[in-house]
Design a protein around this nucleic acid. Structure first.
Lengths: 127, 127
DNA sequence: ATTTGATTACGAAACAATTCGTAGATAAAG
DNA sequence: CTTTATCTACGAATTGTTTCGTAATCAAAT
């Protein structure tokens, strides 16, 4: 298997990808210890997931030493874009604006965040 | 089964919910004909899905005549909010702002949409 | 050298989602 | 009344995801 075709990681895969995106190179144990904080699953479960992700081409690994070192192959931004687009389509009937308002309406965003979004929008419309 | 506990409809279920949210009351055939436009699946597949959704309490139906009439039980806004929150958490490490910018950055939003969002944000921060 | 501990590989079970075929019921058309 | 079409119910196959137990390997510690 291979090819960076799969922009549709499963939920578990996404959890792992997020860690790899943030931390860079990780062993299975690194990833597992972070995952453990939020959910409980055995070590071999994490291992298996990462092995499957390898088969799918979502990650690559350096297997030169006994303890393998993994890194993400999927691009973070592209994946995020793809998932957001899908949600806009699936859940908000194609209206980005509706999603944005829904996201910002409910105390999810701080004043600072809102200000930074405004600045961002100003930049957008002045182009 | 019952209870409006399930805010996590599957993808197929979401497709159906969207139709019910928009159209209101629908027969299986109504739903199926709309679904067919975008995907191909047999009639009994749609039927089965809706029956499962009934068991899960996602929809209700009037079965007084031979052809049953379905309606959504899940609240559209709450479901949208839940899914957006989950995405912010799962995909954007908890930052609503990052998601919004990602959503708006890529030509997904028209000038009009962006303007309406700006107005919306002004309303928010003046509270 | 032997034991201990951590690691990978692998198969399989458990679960969930999707798809569809078939049968039986009901209504409409002839 | 009989045929035809449409509908629901249901079981089962298929596919995908998640979980974990067990065995084999290797390295470090004793």
């Amino acid at each position: 298997m291979a090819a960076i075709n799969n922009l549709k990681p499963t939920e578990s895969e996404l959890e792992i990808l997020q860690i790899l995106w943030e931390k860079g190179n990780c062993t299975v144990r690194d990833v597992h210890e972070i995952l453990e904080k939020n959910k409980d699953a055995g070590y071999t479960t994490t291992l298996k997931l990462m092995q499957i992700m390898l088969e799918k081409g979502l990650v690559a690994r350096d297997a030169s030493s006994k303890t393998h070192i993994y890194r993400a192959l999927l691009n973070q931004e592209k994946t995020q874009q793809h998932l957001v687009d899908k949600m806009i389509d699936n859940v908000f009937n194609g209206s980005a604006a509706r999603m944005v308002m829904q996201a910002l309406g409910n105390h999810t965003a701080s004043k600072e965040e809102i200000d930074s979004i405004k600045k961002y929008l100003d930049g957008l419309s002045n182009q």
